[in-house]
Design a protein around this nucleic acid. Structure first.
Lengths: 340, 340
DNA sequence: CTGTTAGCGCCTTCAA
DNA sequence: TTGAAGGCGCTAACAG
C-alpha cells in the first residue's frame, strides 16, 4: 500500500502555509498575539491538513527540557503504589509533565537498569516509591544530583524531599483504637525493620502508646513477607501465650495484612472475636473478609499529587530547603477490631 | 554551590579521549572490532571519567526510532491490567524498548490526551488494554496507522493484532465445572455486553454449554459495575426464583466479582453452600473470602509478554497478516463452587 | 510582524 | 582504522 506516510515536520507545515518555520514555531508555542491573523489562519489550516504534531523529541533536544518525570516503584503489584501513581499521573497532566513509569519488582538489577534508562531519557526529576528498596541503592540514586522526591520512605543520612504518612499519628490511632476496644495483648508485625524509617516510626509509636496504657501489653515481630511458616509460628505462639487475654494484631502494611489474614484463617482464628486485627493500608477486599478488616487508610491520591508538586518545586529551585510533608491517615473501623 | 554540572555530551567524550565524535559513536554502538584497542581504551576511560550516558532524545531524533512503546490502560486499578503490564514490561527489557504507560481511567478526555501525547513522543507502537473503553475511541486510535496490538478486546469491523484469553474454552470450563458439581440454575453476570467481543463470547459459550446439559438452566444479566442496587435486585431475584434448585453465579471479570461477593455477603448468602460462584480473573484475595472463590485464572504475564512481541512484529512487518493469539485459562477450584 | 541562521546531541555517509 | 561534514525537527537569537 502507501508506505509510511512519514510524519509531517515543521518544515512541511511552513511550506504548506507559505511561510517560515519560525512563525510556525511561534504559533505552536502560543505566541499568537505576535502573528497576523491571516498567517495564523494559514498555519492552522496547514497543521490540520497535515495532521501535524510537533516532535517532543526534537523539542526536548533543543530546549534541554524533556518534561519527563521518572517514577520508580518497587512493587507495582502493591495497590498502595498504584494509587500513589494515579495521584502522580493526575498531577503530571495538570502540570504538563509525562511520567515514565518503572517497576523494579524489588530487584536490584532492574533498579539499576531503570536508573540508567531514566537518565538516558534525561528525565527532569524522579519520584521514588521505594517500598522494599534497600538503602544503598537509594543512596546511589541521590548521587546523580537529579531532583528527587521520596514517597513513604526516607534515606538515612540523606536529606531529601519526602512525602508520606504521618506515621506517628497513624500508629497512635491504631494502637489506641485497639486498646480502647478492650484488647490487652497487642502484637505489632512488620517486615524486618532495618533502617526503614516508616517501619521504625510505626513501631516506636506503637510502643509509646502501649506504655501509656497500663493494662495493655505489647510486643513486636519482624517477618519477611513470604516467610509464611515463620509468620504461622509467630502468630500461633503469640495467641497461645496470651490465650487468657484479648489478643490483637497490627500489621504494618497491606501485603503483610494479606498474609496475616491467610494465616489466621488457616489457624481458624476468627478476627474480631478470637483476635483483633488492624492493618495499615486500605485494600479493595478489606470489607470482604470475615466481618471486615479495620484499616488505616492513607490519602494515597493526595500523597502522589503532592509528590509531583514537590519534584517540580525542586526542579525550579534546586537549592531550596528540603521539605518533608506528612499526611494524616484515616482509621476505617470494621469488624476485625470489634470484640462483639 | 557548583551550579549544574551539565551532562557530558559525545563531544566532551571525544575531546577527553583525544579523538573524534565518530569513533565514540562507533564505540557506543558496538562497532568495537573496527576500533584500535588503544582508542577503545581511551574512550572507555573518558566515558567513565565523565559519567557519560548518550542522550536517547538525540539518538531517537537522528535515527527516527524512539524505541518507545505506548501502553494505554483503561483502568490501572484493575489487577488484571497490572499483571499484563508486568509482562509487557519484562518483554520491553528483553527487547530494548521503553514503556510509556498511560492510564485513561476510563475517561474519554484522558484517552485523547494520551493518544496525542504518545504520538508526540513518536512511540513506535502501542498496546491497548481497553477494558471498558468504548468502540469509537478504539476506532479513532487505529486511524493513525501506528502499529497497534489489542489486549483482551477486539474492535468490531477492524482487523488488528489481538492477544487474549481463549474465551470459549474458558467459559466452557467454568460452566461445565458448575454443572458437574451439581448446580442446576446458573446466572451469568457481566457488564453491559454492547459489542465487546470478550463479554459476548463468554456469554455465548455459556449458553452453548448449558444447552448441552439438559438438567441445567441458565440465564444472564448485564449490569454496570457500580450499579450496586441493580446487582442486588438481580441476585435476590435469581436466587429467589430458583430457591428450590442449586444456584450458581458466574461473574465475567474481577472487579465485578468483587461487587458480587460484597452483595452476596450483604444478603447473607454463603458461597458454595447457598450458592455457587465462579469468577473470571484470579485476584490476590480469591482464597480469602468465605471458603475461597473459584476463579478462572488467565496467564496474564504471558499475555503481556506476547503482546509486546506482537507489536514489535508489526513494527518490523507493517504489512504482514494480522494475527490473533488466544491463551488457555486455568480453573482454580476453591470452596465457592463446592456444594459440600 | 516575519524570515534567516545557527545549533541542541547524535549517527551516517563519505573521504582520508 | 579514523575523522569531518551534514542533517534529524525544533527553537532562539538576530536581522529585516
Amino acid at each position: 500500500m502507501t508506505s509510511r506516510p512519514a510524519r509531517a515536520t515543521i518544515s512541511d507545515v511552513a511550506r504548506a502555509a507559505g511561510t517560515g518555520k519560525t512563525s510556525v514555531s511561534r504559533y505552536l508555542n502560543g505566541e499568537l498575539d505576535i502573528l497576523s491573523p491571516a498567517l495564523k489562519e494559514r498555519i492552522a489550516q496547514a497543521i490540520a491538513a497535515l495532521d501535524y504534531r510537533p516532535s517532543q523529541m526534537a523539542r526536548s533536544l533543543k530546549r534541554g527540557r524533556t518534561r519527563l518525570i521518572g517514577l520508580i516503584i518497587a512493587d507495582i503489584t502493591n495497590a498502595y503504589s498504584v494509587e500513589i501513581m494515579c495521584g502522580i499521573e493526575a498531577a503530571c497532566r495538570d502540570y504538563g509533565f509525562t511520567l515514565l513509569m518503572c517497576n523494579t519488582n524489588n530487584e536490584l538489577a532492574l533498579e539499576q537498569y531503570y536508573i540508567q534508562l531514566l537518565s538516558s531519557y534525561q528525565v527532569e526529576g524522579i519520584i521514588v516509591n521505594a517500598v522494599g528498596m534497600r538503602e544503598e541503592e537509594l543512596g546511589r540514586l541521590q548521587q546523580s544530583r537529579l531532583p528527587m522526591t521520596l514517597i513513604d520512605r526516607k534515606i538515612a543520612d540523606f536529606d531529601c524531599d519526602v512525602i508520606g504518612l504521618d506515621n506517628h499519628e497513624a500508629s497512635e490511632k491504631v494502637t489506641r483504637h485497639l486498646a480502647d476496644n478492650g484488647y490487652t495483648a497487642l502484637l505489632f508485625i512488620s517486615e524486618p525493620i532495618g533502617s526503614v524509617n516508616t517501619r521504625r516510626e510505626r513501631l516506636e509509636t506503637f510502643r509509646q502508646t502501649i506504655a501509656a496504657c497500663p493494662d495493655v501489653e505489647g510486643e513486636n515481630a519482624e517477618i519477611a513477607l513470604h516467610q509464611t511458616s515463620e509468620l504461622s509460628l509467630c502468630l500461633k505462639d503469640f495467641l497461645h501465650r496470651h490465650r487468657h487475654q484479648r489478643c490483637a494484631i497490627i500489621s504494618a502494611n497491606g501485603p503483610l495484612t494479606l498474609q496475616v489474614v491467610k494465616e489466621l484463617q488457616a489457624q481458624a482464628v476468627v478476627t474480631g472475636t478470637d483476635a483483633g486485627l488492624v492493618g495499615f493500608d486500605e485494600m479493595n477486599w478489606s470489607s470482604l473478609v470475615g466481618s471486615g478488616i479495620t484499616t488505616l487508610k492513607q490519602p494515597t491520591h493526595q500523597i502522589g499529587y503532592r509528590a509531583l508538586q514537590s519534584v517540580i518545586h525542586r526542579i525550579k529551585h534546586p537549592d531550596a530547603e528540603k521539605t518533608e510533608q506528612f499526611f494524616s491517615g484515616e482509621l476505617v473501623v470494621r469488624g476485625s477490631s470489634q470484640p462483639l
